[in-house]
Every structure is written in C-alpha cells, then in structure tokens.
C-alpha cells in the first residue's frame, strides 16, 4: 500500500506546478500513530507531507464542501462515492475536481490494535505489506493486516474509486461477500424490546460531542438540527431520550446517502458503533430501491426522488 505514496506526491506536485489545481487534498501523518490527518497542500514543496498507508480512513470529501478553487483529491472507493454524492448535492462541481483514484485494500482498525497490545502506549506503527509492526516503549509486535481491518472494510464492496480522472495503480478485485448484513439481520430478528435495549445500550456511552457528525461528509448543513433552538428538536444534555433522538435523526439524514466509509465510528472517542443505525438504512435502500449510495451521477438517492409512477407497490 505504501508503494502509492511516492506516486501521490509526484502527481500532486505535477498538478500544483502546472496550475491544474490550486490545492491538493490527501493524507499526512498525524501526531498520534494510526491517526492520519487530512492535508491540504497548496505548495509543490509541501507534497512530501502526503502519504498513503493503512490509516487513511478519514473521508476527505468532508473537506470539499463549498470550496470554490480547483482541487486535486485522492479518492479510494469511499472517498469517490462521497464525491459523487457531493456533486449530486451541489456541494462541489465536477469540473472543479481532479480526482486521483487509488485502489484501496482496507484500513486498519486502530481500536483493535490498541486492544491487541493491551492498551499499552503505541509509539509507531509501520506497514510491511500484508503485515504491520506495532512499536511501543518496550515492545514490538507483528500483526496480520487482514485480521485488523476496520469493520466497514471487511464488508466493503467498492475498494476501487467509482469516479476519477486518473488511477494510481491497478484496480483491486472486488470480492462479493456472502452476506455483508449478517449483523443487521441479527438485529432485525430481535423483538421490539430487545431492539430497544440493544440500541439504548449501544449509545449509552455517547457524550454528545458530535464528532461522528463532524467527520461525516454528508453532514454539511450550515446549521444542524441539534443546534436549532426555535423550535428545539433535541435537548442539549446527554439524557438518553435526547441522545437517541440525535442518533436516530442523524441516521435518517444519511438514508440513501451513506457510503459506509466508517469515518463516524473511527472518530468516536468512546467507541460507539453508530454504523448499526446507518447500515440498516443502507440495507433497506438495497432491498427496496436497489440503491447503493454514490455509485452514479445520473440519479439522486431514492428518498430525494419524487415519481408519480413509482414502480414500487409498497409506496402506492
């Protein structure tokens, strides 16, 4: 994976130097291991900050919203699908973008790694192809990447970008998964009481920091409903009712739009798996509308569409 870093830098330099783009958006090393951060590079001399490794899991599309300059951007499957959604929803124009596509082989789940080393302080993590090396003050451990993938990467069906101006590297094979929604089905099978208990438990640790919302490229509204005061839809406290209201509404706002990029879960400081909400809606989108978000510029998401001749019987 790391083999793409050089290529990215090269392309970023060319694009900036030729004036094709005003800014290049990619990833750079964060201050904490496994937490790469987005980098907005404006000067060719800064391109060496850019990199590509197992920890490029924030969704860069978040940094495109309402920009007016010409932008170069790295796009793997997730990023590209959100770029599509961003274009559809008028948050950026296609002609502003120069999309450098990159095949993605999945990102490492930083929490799983921390657990694996018994929450000891990690000073560095180095990729070694199929494996990676975790270094601490007085330890070094090797892990196999495949067993430490982020959960959304395990069920990913779109590793390759769906929209790009050029590709770095050959597309990876998209393996069809036997059942990517086994977890959702398990919840669907629960009784109402059990479901309620499940979700109440799921969000019980939520501190309402809104990191999930801020990391989500879909949440670009100038004012979020949680911040509205006239009328006030949601209380500001972490009362369970308010917290549930927030999570349910946030999920509904993502219905038909979520690409399951996992940014929300990745940034959650208390480790809530809020994808359990959005994945149910993604599954319904597939079942009822044959729809996966961000795959086409031709159609708006099903819940954005009004058709008097809707072919779905359940809507008539």
């Amino acid at each position: 994976m790391e083999r793409y870093t050089e290529k990215i830098r090269e392309r970023a330099r060319d694009l900036l130097e030729s004036g094709k783009v005003d800014v290049f958006i990619g990833y750079s090393k964060g201050s904490v291991p496994m937490m790469n951060r987005p980098a907005l590079i404006r000067e060719p001399r800064e391109v060496n900050k850019l990199l590509w490794d197992n920890h490029c899991a924030l969704n860069l599309c978040n940094y495109l919203t309402k920009r007016t300059e010409k932008i170069g951007i790295i796009a793997n499957g997730c990023n590209s699908r959100n770029i599509v959604t961003h274009i559809l929803e008028n948050q950026i124009k296609r002609e502003q973008l120069y999309i450098v596509g990159i095949p993605c082989e999945g990102m490492v789940d930083h929490r799983a790694v921390a657990r694996a080393v018994g929450q000891r302080d990690i000073l560095a993590v180095e990729g070694l192809g199929e494996e990676f090396l975790v270094k601490g003050k007085d330890f070094e451990e090797r892990f196999t990447k495949q067993t430490f993938l982020q959960r959304n990467c395990v069920t990913c069906r779109h590793h390759n970008p769906v929209i790009y101006d050029e590709m770095i590297g050959e597309p990876v094979e998209e393996g069809e998964l036997p059942n990517g929604y086994a977890d959702v089905e398990a919840i669907e099978g629960m009784s109402s009481d059990k479901k309620w208990a499940f979700f109440a438990q799921l969000i019980s640790r939520c501190i309402r920091c809104y990191a999930c919302r801020n990391a989500c490229p879909l949440c670009y509204c100038p004012t979020c409903f949680v911040d509205e005061s006239k009328p006030q839809w949601v209380g500001k406290s972490s009362d369970p009712t308010d917290t549930m209201t927030f999570h349910l509404l946030r999920a509904y706002h993502c219905a038909g739009r979520c690409t399951d990029c996992g940014a929300c879960e990745r940034v959650c400081p208390v480790g809530i798996s809020m994808r359990q909400f959005t994945r149910k809606l993604n599954k319904d989108g597939e079942t009822f509308f044959s729809w996966e978000a961000g795959l086409t510029l031709e159609k708006r998401p099903p819940l954005d569409t009004y058709r008097p001749d809707d072919y779905n019987d359940f809507i008539k």
Binding site: F225, T241, T245, L248, L249, Y252
Partner: peptide, 10 residues
C-alpha cells in the same frame, strides 16, 4: 418530518 415523530415521543 421524522423530527415530529421523535418529538412526540420525547
């Protein structure tokens, strides 16, 4: 709006 439904429950 879903907001109304959740508000009613709230």
């Amino acid at each position: 709006s879903p907001k109304f439904i959740l508000s009613a429950f709230r």
